[in-house]
């Protein structure tokens, strides 16, 4: 009898402790959650709702149900081109950008702290310098004086200057190159920090257990210990690869010749900024989101399989 009583009293005490601990946890989460809800979740919800309306940013939204979506898939003739461009850019720059950002971080990690800081600074420099793609405009300038044209002319490889950014067959590959070169941002630095956090004892243990070269070590030790950071990289890479728009607009303009360099996000920006069709822009965003989310779910499974 006595014993049973003390047990219940104790568990009440425990319950209260747990409740208090959870309360603190909720308090720690709340500043983020409240602000996140107000400035991100609410706008996303209203944007999704808006995608079912006809809204010009000024007058009252008019209910249109699936009108925007039907128009997108049936009537819009820029959308198929923009979709295929976006997919090409995403398929090329997404995995490749991720790969380059990971491998460079991994290589840089071999050096001592000072060289490491210097090298990662050099790779991160485009992100620090701001709007740097102008350099590519100079390189790919369409007249005979552009660096690439004048070099090719002087080598005799071409007879007349190529309009690099105006030519539909060159525009997309050039954007791929520029985008890859700019991908040394968030993913690269998070990989650098992730590599710092890999326990060095694992490497020692690996060397003893018969890891022969750096590739073995990478596959069996580094990648498995970096999985959660790599998952972060995957999501950030999906986000940037599917959202490419600034570079093509800056280099090729919008709309580009034959829509050869238009992407979904540049279409969204155009619909919203110059045509004020906010409901339609929201509908395109929803479609793009579904595309990105499906990709993310698929790749999440792949990352988990690595290093097995």
């Amino acid at each position: 009898m006595e014993n049973a009583k003390t047990v219940t009293v104790l568990s009440k005490q425990q319950k209260r402790d747990r409740f208090l601990a959870n309360l603190v946890h909720y308090l720690m989460l709340s500043p983020f959650f409240i602000l996140f809800f107000a400035f991100t979740v609410l706008p996303v919800i209203s944007s999704v709702v808006l995608s079912f309306f006809d809204f010009d940013a000024v007058s009252t939204p008019r209910w249109g149900f699936l009108d925007n979506y039907l128009r997108l898939f049936v009537q819009d003739d820029v959308f198929p081109k923009a979709l295929s461009n976006t997919l090409v850019l995403a398929i090329v720059t997404g995995p490749l950008g991720f790969f380059v950002a990971f491998m460079l971080a991994w290589m840089v990690n071999e050096f001592g702290p000072s060289v490491r800081t210097l090298l990662s600074f050099m790779f991160y420099a485009p992100a620090l310098a701001g709007n740097v793609y102008f350099i590519w405009q100079i390189l790919f300038s369409g007249d005979a004086y552009g660096y690439i044209n004048s070099t090719l002319l002087s080598w005799g490889l071409i007879v007349e200057p190529i309009q690099w950014l105006k030519n539909p067959s060159y525009a997309l590959p050039i954007i791929c190159i520029v985008q890859l070169w700019m991908s040394m941002g968030v993913t690269f630095l998070s990989n650098i920090s992730g590599l710092q956090n890999v326990n060095p004892e694992l490497y020692e243990a690996g060397a003893i257990d018969g890891v022969k070269n750096r590739w073995h070590e990478l596959w069996y030790i580094t990648i498995p210990s970096m999985k959660s950071i790599m998952m972060f990289g995957v999501v950030m890479q999906i986000q940037s690869a599917f959202s490419i728009s600034v570079v093509p607009i800056a280099l090729c303009g919008y709309p580009s010749i034959n829509n050869s360099a238009d992407t979904i996000v540049s279409l969204i920006t155009d619909v919203g900024t110059s045509r004020y069709e906010m409901g339609y822009a929201a509908a395109i965003s929803v479609v793009l989101f579904i595309l990105m989310f499906a990709t993310k779910s698929l790749l999440g499974k792949l990352v988990n399989m690595a290093g097995r």
Binding site: L42, S46, A57, A282, M292
Partner: peptide, 16 residues
Amino acid sequence: VQMSLLYNAYTLEIPR
């Protein structure tokens, strides 16, 4: 939180 990263930021400007 993860999903919000994938939603196009431009369309959020007016609600924001």
